[in-house]
């Protein structure tokens, strides 16, 4: 196993950040840690990257124990913290060279690994890191985390605050890195990115809700979801929440995702109810569950 976590718990004074977390990540896997802000994702990353010592449980990364072999882990993992943490007053090239040097390697030695990413920022190699755009900064940070050819890569919310195009590019890069046999643990609050992982763990309030492949997680969602739309979104949500048979009501883009608690649900009944609430242009359609729906259901 590339990462093996068993019964990890960590609390800050009274707040329990992680409660009895256990899971394994296979070598070469792209594993996603999906959860809202404050779920404990960063704490788990800090435990695995040896920055924080857990109160209970143990974990291994690339075969090394996070407490006893922390020195070996630091040589073998790449970590990209959620906050951009490179030297803003050094240039792109200087940052990269700095990290290469402190890992005891050179840019040339592992250039093939970062080449595809680095060529995109190479035109700006003499620019100070602080002057780069958000997407460029992420690419540079990824290069710096990869420069010593790590076995395991930890990416803590790498796409938060990055534009959709750069996000897409970033995930494409991760897919390519995966082919180079690097195990990747990535955390994200975006549910749409979860579908791009091999397996995901849904995490909330320091607890794992479910671990499986994105497809399997969606399949486990047994209820039929309806896309509901009407002229007045706010009134629609309130009305649906008033409806006595409702099971869940969540806004989802331009629709409301609605599930019913009865097995013999007829959308026509709902339509009549909504019309009685003076809503017009009502549209009720079946739709398939997404990871977000699963998450909302599990987090209920």
């Amino acid at each position: 196993m590339s990462i093996s976590i068993s019964n990890i718990s960590k609390s800050y004074k009274k707040a329990k950040a992680l409660q009895d977390i256990s899971f394994d990540v296979k070598p070469g896997e792209l594993f996603g840690l999906i959860g809202p802000d404050g779920a404990g994702k960063t704490t788990l990353f800090r435990v695995l990257t040896t920055l924080l010592i857990a109160n209970e449980g143990n974990a291994t990364v690339a075969g090394f124990d996070v407490v006893d072999d922390y020195k070996s882990i630091r040589k073998n993992v790449g970590y990209m913290p959620g906050k951009f943490s490179l030297y803003q007053d050094l240039t792109v090239e200087e940052n990269l060279k700095f990290f290469a040097t402190i890992f005891g390697t050179t840019i040339e030695e592992n250039y093939d690994l970062i080449k595809e990413i680095y060529v995109q920022i190479e035109p700006f190699k003499d620019r100070r890191a602080g002057k780069l755009s958000g997407g460029m900064k992420q690419k540079l940070a990824l290069c710096c985390a990869l420069i010593h050819k790590p076995k395991v890569l930890f990416l803590d919310e790498p796409t938060t605050g990055v534009d959709p195009v750069s996000r897409k590019e970033f995930w494409d890069m991760l897919k390519r890195l995966q082919q180079k046999h690097i195990t990747i643990l990535v955390s994200t609050p975006y549910m749409d990115e979860a579908a791009l992982c091999d397996r995901i763990a849904l995490i909330q309030d320091g607890k794992i809700l479910e671990i499986d492949s994105p497809e399997a997680i969606v399949k486990n969602y047994t209820k039929q979801i309806y896309n509901v739309r009407a002229n007045n979104m706010y009134l629609l949500i309130n009305s649906l929440k008033e409806y006595e048979y409702n099971h869940s009501v969540y806004p989802f883009g331009e629709f409301v995702h609605y599930t019913n608690s009865r097995t013999d649900f007829n959308p026509e009944n709902l339509k009549v109810f909504l019309e009685s609430k003076s809503l017009i242009d009502i549209e009720i359609k079946k739709t398939v569950a997404t990871i977000e729906d699963t998450f909302m259901e599990l987090a209920k």
Partner: peptide, 9 residues
């Protein structure tokens, strides 16, 4: 940056 440095050998 210290966080990043601390994860290096």
């Amino acid at each position: 940056t210290l966080e990043q440095i601390n994860v290096t050998p």
